[in-house]
């Protein structure tokens, strides 16, 4: 794992306005029913695939097609190190957004007087983290 590569990936992802709008949409819209409707549960949030897809699309292909990768490989960076760093960068970011979404949803449910069971929240959040790591791995290997 190379923290320089991971940080650069996050900054690269955040530099795209289109990606930011998509992430905001995928993050915010599923929270609206929970915010405004009493009784709406975690199932409204769905899975984290959309967030990971938007974060991870072209995570390696973009560097290959633009030619940026050549300069990175001229540095003391092994190919597996680069791929793993891209994978972890997307997986960590996807997990963080998923967990934040679950935390906000839990807060909204509590505000409606019906907080989720701690076990349900942990199970749901855990499943989304695993999804993030799994899908990010698929995107890194494609």
């Amino acid at each position: 794992m190379n923290t320089t590569l991971i940080t650069a990936l996050w900054r690269q992802r955040l530099a795209s306005p289109v990606r930011l709008v998509l992430l905001g949409t995928l993050f915010g819209i599923p929270l609206l029913p929970i915010l405004f409707m009493q009784g709406a549960g975690f199932s409204v949030l769905g899975n984290s695939q959309g967030l990971v897809l938007v974060l991870g699309a072209g995570m390696i292909g973009q560097d290959v097609s633009s030619g940026v990768l050549q300069l990175i490989y001229a540095r003391p960076v092994r190919r597996p190190e680069y791929v793993v760093s891209r994978w972890l960068g997307v997986a960590f970011a996807g997990s963080a957004l998923s967990l934040l979404q679950v935390a906000l949803a839990s807060g909204f449910m509590a505000a409606h007087g019906a907080p989720p069971a701690a076990r349900d929240a942990v199970m749901f959040a855990g499943a989304r983290v695993l999804e993030s790591f799994g899908l990010a791995a698929v995107l890194a290997l494609l």
Partner: peptide, 17 residues
């Protein structure tokens, strides 16, 4: 690679940096 410097013919950079 730790002691190597390289400048390619067609330099492409991350444009956001």
């Amino acid at each position: 690679r730790a002691v190597t410097g390289y400048l390619p013919e067609r330099l492409v950079l991350d444009r956001w940096m």
